[in-house]
Design a protein around this nucleic acid. Structure first.
Lengths: 190, 190, 190, 190
DNA sequence: CATGAATGAGATTTCATTCAT
DNA sequence: AATGAATGAAATCTCATTCAT
């Protein structure tokens, strides 16, 4: 992706995300995206040389954004559970406020659009999460099981919670958030 | 005359599911499906009057299948946790053995294919799960929180576990299964 | 066309005619025809070996019917104008009561369905009309112009009259009929 | 950017008309039209969003053209019969030179293509003809009968004449034209 | 004979991409 | 760089015809 006008790339990404939520990854066309972004179809090709590249770039951008936000304000000096909850809340908030990204990522998971390279690049970004959970196990606060399994639980429950919240219009009160966190913690704690 | 062959619908469904896993929902065409099902493209239209209808029918069938399997062998007379684990294992096994269906369902969720009617029909099938969790709350074995939240944990963690297992080729040993069940139970138990 | 069941051929013809009026010659399919005739699609091919043959057979049948009715009750011994009006009325009545046939014939005129053979067979049936007009010229009652031109006038005005009557729901009173006949006669009379 | 070329619509219309004459309305395909117009099939959809819309637009255009030509050079100040013959000749000439349009219109009449809106729009354009005949009745030159009936004769005889001329290769000599006009006038005059 | 499911060629339509302006 | 008309390959869908029952 070239660097002609970064605002335009943002418009394109926003347009694509909105469309994926409403029409699904399989339903969006370059025409739709350009229209929603307020530019001409041909202009898309100034920024991305194909639909594939556009989707991959968006996937990578979402992933980076998401990880970056997760650890904002995380202070390793704090007690483990405090830091863990901080990250957990970061993730929750990020996904709720950027629901479109979450949907897009899920749709991408089984699509032929995402290349192995992009996929691998994404999984490399998971390192900080691994470290966080390893630390918990080292401090004997988390169950001494495979880290992958712990992440699975963390991610899976979070994903579903965000979807539920979004679709059923449940407002996430402080109490509900705490309840949910407690459930997650109960699952992971040793 | 040639009689409409009921097995043919099954072949079509199998073909479509296989293709969604390998090429994504956006990648499958009626031509691909018919070829994979070993019939002529036109024949698809004998059974479904459009691609839309085919996808909706498959979606509904998957959902029904899945629910039906979940409660196979479930005996309400047994102690709660025993029955709960039985259902949990049913779901896990079903999803692992029918991974294609899970992928398909996920891809469908945000697609323009699934009509509101299909969606509603699907959600009506969730009733048995609700009842199972309500019973747990009544027996004071599960946390006295919103049933939706309990299901969220159940489903979310399971989904992610299945995906992980499938993609990372982890073999689900008896131990690993029990560990995972314990995490789930810990999250839900009061 | 074979002779399996003449009533069935009639049903097929009726169905085809009805459909041509409502959907046009270009809009009818063998499926439509069979459904409207209350038989299976395959059965059509017992009676006609192709769609082309069906259309041609129907065309020929309509044409024969129409000519046969035109001269019913015509008595050459009567004075010319009386006989002429008799035929004119026959044609008018026939077309009004068999409007579907008229529409079908018109649609066929410029269609590639009708083969040259069918077309020629049809024009051979025009002989009686020619004779009728020749006689009028011989008796010096009609204008001494090309017979084709006279027929053109006769047919053209009749066609349009029938369409008008049918579509605008005008009821053809005896007076209106007489007025119309007079106009036609005025055009042709010497 | 490439500018939409207004002549392209004309090319498309010409191509469609030519094809309807040679293959009938049921025989033309979007592929044929585009090929005959010298453009890619997809380009047709830049100008018309479906085959239906193309046919309707062509129908409307033909109708407008035809009416516009009919009154070219008509001067209400001239004696009635002179003006009437002028219009009559205009129509005749137009139909002979634009035979394809006439065929197309006829085929369209009973086709599922033409929408009620298009049909109504077309009939509204008949007003000038009505006025012309009303004037003739007011001047007591035409029979005091329903205007619709007068138009019926005018149009019906003309249509058939044009068809005859076209198909039987009769050359329309000045004499033949005058003869025909006289027949028409005799039919209508009081 | 009658049936209607099955076929596949061909029709309509879509859409990623290119290109002239 | 930006535009959107033009393209044509590929997708969806239709339908005359065949064929197994």
């Amino acid at each position: 992706m070239k660097r002609k006008d970064d605002r335009k790339v943002g418009q394109i990404f926003q347009a694509a995300l909105k469309l994926v939520v409403s029409k699904g990854l399989s339903g969006i066309t370059m025409g739709d995206i350009s229209k929603a972004a307020g530019i001409a179809t041909g202009t898309l090709y100034v920024y991305f040389k194909s639909k594939d590249e556009l989707i991959n770039a968006l996937f990578a951008a979402c992933r980076e954004n998401s990880v970056a936000h997760s650890f904002k304000g995380y202070d390793p000096a704090q007690p483990y559970k405090v830091g863990f909850k901080h990250v957990w809340l970061n993730i929750l908030r990020y996904r709720l406020h950027n629901f479109e990204e979450a949907v897009f990522m899920e749709q991408c998971y089984h699509s032929p659009f995402i290349t192995p390279e992009t996929r691998e690049k994404a999984s490399r970004l998971a390192a900080p999460y691994n470290e966080l959970l390893e630390r918990g196990k080292k401090e004997q606060l988390l169950k001494p099981v495979d880290t992958g399994l712990l992440i699975t639980f963390l991610v899976g429950s979070m994903n579903e919670l965000v979807k539920q919240t979004h679709y059923h219009g449940t407002t996430l009160t402080r109490t509900r958030i705490n309840t949910t966190f407690d459930m997650c913690w109960d699952a992971l704690k040793s």
